[in-house]
Each structure stands twice: as C-alpha cells, then as structure tokens.
Design a binder for these strands. Structure first.
Lengths: 186, 186
DNA sequence: TCAGGGTCTGACCGATCGGTCAGGCATGCT
DNA sequence: AGCATGCCTGACCGATCGGTCAGACCCTGA
C-alpha cells in the first residue's frame, strides 16, 4: 500500500475536505479519511498532529479573511459598520463557501471549544455591526437570521457561480437589514 | 438510588431536552441524560427503546405542526403559497423554538436518516413555496437563507416573548422574500 | 403467604473513536 | 558499506458509545 509520490499530505487534506463536506467534522473519522486516500490512519496522524489540526489548516484562509474583516470593523459604527459588515461577510461567505460548508452546521459545537473562542468573539462583533447601533431586538434578530442563514445555506450554493451568488446575497442582506442612519459629523 | 415517585419517564424526557439543547443530539450520551436525572443508563433505555425514540418523542409536536402546514400548502401556488408558507413557518419556529433549538444545527445529519426522510421532503416543499413559483435562483437563495437562518437562529431566541419574536420574524420574512404576483383567476 | 408484574440496576457486550508506538523500507549522504 | 532520515505501517491502547440482560426490589391482588 506504499505510495509512489510523496504528495500524501496534500491528498489527505483534499480527502478530509471532501469527507468533512459530505458527513461533517464529527461525522468523519480519521479512518474514513485514510480509506479515502488509500493509506493508513497512522499515516494521517503522521502528517497532522491530530484531527483538529486538519480542520484548522483547512479553515485557515477563511479565518484569516474573517480576521481581516474584524480589523476593518474596529472603530466603525452605525450605517458605515453595517455596510462594511454585510458586504464583507457576503464576500467571505461566497469566497469560502466550500470551507464553511464542510462544517455542516457544527458551528455551535466547534465554537464552544476554547481553540475557537476568538472566532466566537469575532462573530459576535460582526453580528453587532450588522444589527447596527440600534438596540431594538428586531434588528438583532434580522442580523442573526441573516448570519446563520448564509452560513448554513452556503453549503447548497457550491455549484453556483460567484457572480450570480454574490449579488443575490448582497441584495438579500440589504433588504433584510433595516438601514441605520449615518452619524452626522461636525 | 431508587426514586420515590414513578415520574421517572417524564424526568428523563425533560432532562434529555435540556441536555440536547445544551450539547446537541450527537453530543449528548445516554449516560449524560441518566446522570442529569439521577438514574442509571439502563433505566433510560427501560423507558425508551433507544436514543432516537427520545428525540422523536421530543420532536413529535413540532413535526405534527410541520405536517399540518405541509397539508395546507398542497394545491396552493404563487403568492398565496408564499404567504402561507412564510407565516406558517414563522409560527412553527416561534412555537417550537425550544424543540428546534435542541437539534443545534444537526438538521442536515439527522434529515439524512431514512426515518426523517418525510421531513426532508416537507422542508423542500416549504422551500419551494417560500421561493414562489419563480425559478430565479435569487428567490430560492432568499428562501433558503431565511429558512436556515430562522431554524438555526431560534436557539438564541428562547428567552424572548412570543409577541415580540413573531412580528419581528414576520416582518423580516416579508422584507427578505420578494413578492410573487398572484395568478389571475378567470 | 405467595405469585406476578412494573421498575430499576450493575455488569457486560461489541463497535468505534482519536491517538501512540516500535519497527520496516527506501533513499541519499559520508 | 554503513548510517541517518523521511515516510509509512500494523498492532495496540484507553475511553466512550448505544444497547442487552439477568436479577433485585417493591407493590398489589389472590
């Protein structure tokens, strides 16, 4: 069962992405991934410290983009923050919908792990920004439904071209989120 | 550890609801539930045939209401179907948000099980109705995001009063879903 | 008094999980 | 030739899972 090319690491990563997308993170065992690659489970754990390392490497680009959005959001308030948050999140969801899809609704569980606590915090800031400065519950509800709906729904959009999905999600976000007036600078 | 009152069955059901809501269906073991009740795992399995029976009994009222909505939807098309679907689903989500919440994003996995195949089919019909007869992708995207977002988000709304949550979700649904003209009867 | 049924339990089962470990094999450097 | 290194493996580990089972306990009715 020895492999000819030393491309095993990349193959493991690709197979893990496929399996996670098909059956979720918890629903995929290391043995599943090893079988898909055609190697042993021990080989998977030779290339990756543990199962979580596989997931974090797969999610790293998406997390980096979320971090960048979070940085852009600091200092912004009101309508400006709302627009940046909504457009930034739609861009993120469109670009990394395959990565988001492979969590398959396991966000809540995974975010509870201490290793992902900073993602939890960024998500909360994103939600606050999308809800606007308004403290009306309706605004937070709309923002939360949009955030959760796009995260969970993008698994269904993997085969849709970017330039069709992006404007549709943007238009939806604009419709769903009630605009917040910009503060008047003096 | 013998219990005084023979209310064990109800206590197991209540504890299961709490644990499922806290850590999800797959994330909750029968031992967790037994510990929460203060009985043995064997007692849980004495009152319920298996773990899935616990879940189905907990979800039965919500599933019944979904079934009723599905029945009301048959024969309806266009804007009428869209309104009935949106309002019916919001009602369902508000009324049974605790039950929906305890799935904690495990919808996709659970729906894949053959025992829940009919729920899968009802969900698809609900999605079609909410998207309207329109076959434009944007309409289906909006409906899907709304459906997924409300399902996933209602876990956060458990402490909100019904008469605040319901109109907020209804208004959001109306904003998110582009209206479809009713067919003109001749 | 005894039989029987409802309730509950500890002990146990096979399966599967993530993860460890010593060692085999090929390659390339000295 | 000898040795180190990188890659890979089967065998194994402890933990946990859902689920089974024989039997103990209690109550009730004959």
């Amino acid at each position: 069962m020895r492999r000819a090319e030393p491309e095993t690491r990349g193959e493991i990563l690709a197979a893990a992405a496929r399996r996670f997308a098909a059956t979720g993170y918890r629903g995929t065992s290391l043995q599943d991934i090893a079988t898909a690659v055609g190697c042993s489970k021990a080989t998977v754990l030779y290339h990756f410290a543990n199962k979580e390392a596989l997931l974090t490497e797969l999610m790293a680009p998406a997390i980096a983009m979320l971090q960048a959005l979070d940085d852009r959001l600091t200092g912004l308030t009101g309508g400006a923050a709302q627009r940046v948050a909504a457009e930034g999140f739609v861009d993120l969801a469109v670009r990394f919908r395959r990565e988001i899809a492979l969590l398959r609704g396991e966000f809540p569980e995974l975010l509870q792990q201490p290793a992902f606590a900073h993602i939890q915090r960024m998500s909360e800031r994103l939600l606050d920004a999308m809800a606007g400065t308004s403290d009306r519950p309706a605004a937070r509800i709309a923002a939360l439904v949009l955030l959760a709906g796009i995260s969970e729904g993008c698994a269904e959009f993997v085969d849709m071209p970017d330039d069709e999905l992006r404007p549709a999600l943007l238009a939806l976000a604009r419709r769903a989120l009630e605009p917040v007036p910009d503060p008047i600078h003096d």
